[in-house]
Design a binder for these strands. Structure first.
Lengths: 189, 189
DNA sequence: GGATCCATGTAACGTGTTACATGATTCT
DNA sequence: AGAATCATGTAACACGTTACATGGATCC
């Protein structure tokens, strides 16, 4: 049982899903690929933490809709209240931004623009996500809360952080141009 | 040459450092351990991207202070302007928060408290870091900018994001208590 | 007296990514 | 006509972490 396995249980606690759905959903919070997820799902099933319902399809492989068992729910809660590991973050952009002051203006500006582009695209994506969530909630107001809550709070969080990053970029651009220590007097506001 | 290697060059571009220093510094932006860093430094040295100055010590192993060569600086710039990989984030806390609505109030509150604790500790750490940077800048105002700029902008960014997370926690606590979809009308403000 | 910091390095292991494999349907 | 989406799965490889290894100085 590694962290990703618990993540799968976490997603499945909100609604039954296929491995394919899990892959796309979890990727927003925990970078991974289907190659890592499918074997873990088999293990979770062998351990009776999840069960599957087979949906027969033609043209594509049959769809396996997984849902938590009672044993799985117990495991989820025990993980939830156990100690939480420190986050692992590996962001190449950050590594680049760290040495931006040693780069010429052209290279520096190119990087900032690239980053701002990414932020804007992400913000757009978050807005779409919020719209999608609200439609989903209107369509079935009775059992939507569980499946919608997690996505909603995470989307709001991502949106706020990304908007902050955009402001931060402008600030970095401004103080980059001062080639002395006066930037230390300027706070990010 | 993997991403971490470039990260080491990025840090070394601001000031010469030992592998030990690099390990502690890079960890704020890119999770890694000395076991991964030392072999990469040897490779970078073999490729003549960095050179070392040996500082003899007693009791501890001799200190190896690495600095960029011209070849290393060229490599750094070519990496800087090349395409940037998407960030990799694996945060167990986020996985837990995703399913918080499926958990009982006690477990939910415990998690939120734990997260807020972490945020507060991190904020304290960032403030200390800012103070340390300002002292460093006052001590040698002439060559400090290069080594200080990166740390300063990253610390400011981390601080802002963590303060935002703290507000977010309060917001989540508030809407968690509403056991229906009305939370969708509430924005994070 | 034990923990932490400094300071380097290697080996075994676990995890994650890329590539391989298949194939119908839908969008551009 | 080609790319993307849906949908599963395995194998080889790259990468990262933990543990092993050493040892003096300093803090609590």
């Amino acid at each position: 049982m590694n962290k990703l396995s618990y993540g799968l249980l976490s997603l499945l606690s909100t609604e039954p899903m296929s491995g394919y759905d899990l892959t796309t959903k979890i990727n927003k919070f925990w970078r991974s690929t289907h190659s890592a997820i499918y074997p873990l799902l088999s293990e979770l099933e062998e351990g009776n933490y999840i069960e599957l319902t087979l949906i027969e399809q033609t043209g594509k492989p049959d769809k396996k809709i997984y849902h938590l068992t009672d044993k799985g729910k117990e495991l989820l809660r025990s993980w939830f209240i156990s100690e939480t590991a420190d986050e692992v973050c590996r962001d190449e952009m950050t590594l680049k931004l760290y040495c931006i002051n040693c780069m010429d203006e052209e290279a520096a500006e190119t990087l900032l623009k690239e980053y701002e582009d990414r932020c804007n695209k992400r913000i757009e994506m978050y807005h779409k996500n919020l719209a999608r969530i609200k439609v989903l909630a209107q369509e079935n107001p009775d059992n939507a809360p569980a499946s919608v809550f997690g996505s909603y709070i995470m989307t709001q969080r991502g949106l706020q952080k990304t908007e902050l990053d955009l402001k931060w970029c402008e600030w970095v651009r401004r103080i980059y141009k001062k080639k002395n220590l006066s930037f230390l007097k300027e706070d990010l506001r």
